[in-house]
Computed example of a mutant assay.
Amino acid sequence: MISIKDLSKVFKTKDQDVRAVDKLNLSIDKGEIFGVIGYSGAGKSTFIRLLNRLEEPTSGNIQMNDQNLTGLSKNKLRIARQEIGMIFQHFNLLWSRTVFDNIAFPLEIAGIAKSKRVERVNELIELVGLSGRGNSYPSQLSGGQKQRVGIARALANNPKVLLCDEATSALDPETTDSILDLLVNINEKLGLTIVLITHEMHVIRKICHRVAVMESGRIVEAGDVLDVFLHPKEKVTKRFVDQVMGDPDREDSLHLINQNYKAGEVIQLHFVGENTNQALISELSREFTIDVNILHGKITQTQKGAYGTMLVQLVGDQDEVDRSIAYIKTTSVEVEVSPDV
């Protein structure tokens, strides 16, 4: 669906050249929700604007919908962009136009007949949950409602790809969740490919099938969301996973645990999918002559299933503790002995 090869963007300034995107390679499948996450300055906003050539690439190739976007003339690009919708962090609505007219605007530009425009806009108002608000102006809407207008407008020309540039970062948590639910619904109903960028791992966790982590203009890690949660390799990825699963003071917490729970062995368990329902702790207590002390635990849900972690202390004869750890390793629950940062 989308194939990106050696994509680069260099901004030239008086003092230096800034490489915002650096030889980036990525493949995004048709119909998936693909997340790109990174901290400020990672290059993710530049990257998503390169995808529809709002920014012109310095080098590289973007293949989308069987077209080489980087090789299109301005006229052909204008036509190709009708298949690429985009929503923005700050909505970018026309404040002098009603909800109806904001959504209709791309259809007007495309030369769609008025009767068909009215039909299409009414469909979209219903789809995004704004029934009865067609005559309202943006100033009369909440932030979530404004973003729903932005989503409807982006869908006006029946695009195949929807680009989301920090689409929820200006919203409160409850409104964010409602917008994310809407995006999932659109993805499932329309089979739309969605590419979103964010700095919030909660967004990735909730709706994305796969994720790429950006740092200094490069993709440093990518994969299925559940795999990235379970096995984050890069330090930046571990920081993002800790936003959802971890303890922001993990280093201090482990230090306190090592101070206060010197007896026995402290281990960290990782549960995935159906394993989150496994009664492992009670099994250990029954099968081995040890005491199991639960220190900390958390479970969360991703698009591919549940993921949980638990810190426990095993107290007893060392041979019995070692046997219990060996038993855990025979299950599908992953175990990390003496976890550190």
Rank of each mutant, 00 (worst) to 15 (best):
R239G: 07
V228A: 04
L256M: 12
V312D: 00
R210W: 03
R205Q: 15
H199W: 05
V241D: 00
L190P: 07
A263C: 02
M214F: 15
M310Y: 03
T309R: 10
L230G: 08
E274K: 14
I299R: 08
V225H: 02
L192N: 00
G305P: 05
E200F: 07
H202V: 04
L226A: 08
D252T: 13
C208D: 06
K233F: 07
T198K: 04
A222S: 15
A212N: 08
G191D: 02
L284W: 06
N277P: 05
E251A: 13
E234Y: 06
I197R: 00
I294A: 09
I194N: 03
Q301N: 13
K235V: 13
K189L: 07
L269R: 08
K238Q: 15
D247P: 00
V292I: 10
I294Y: 02
H270M: 14
E265S: 14
E265R: 15
F240V: 04
V266N: 13
G191I: 03
A263G: 10
S282C: 02
V211D: 02
V195L: 08
T300R: 11
D249R: 11
V203L: 03
R250W: 14
R239E: 15
K189M: 01
L230F: 04
E221Y: 01
M310N: 05
A263S: 14
N277F: 13
E274P: 06
A279Y: 09
D227T: 12
I207M: 05
I257W: 11
T289K: 13
V272W: 08
H199S: 03
S285G: 03
F288Q: 07
R218Y: 02
G297H: 06
F288Y: 12
R210N: 11
E251P: 00
L196S: 02
L280F: 09
L196K: 05
V213M: 09
H255Q: 11
I281W: 04
H199N: 05
E287N: 14
L295M: 08
T237D: 01
A263P: 02
S216A: 15
K298W: 06
E283K: 13
R210S: 08
I197M: 06
G297Q: 09
S216R: 13
A222T: 14
G264Y: 12
E234C: 00
R250G: 12
S282V: 10
V312C: 09
N260V: 07
V266W: 06
V195F: 02
F271L: 14
R250V: 14
H231D: 12
D227W: 02
N293R: 08
F288T: 05
I204H: 01
F240S: 03
N293A: 04
E274G: 09
I257D: 03
I194K: 00
I281C: 07
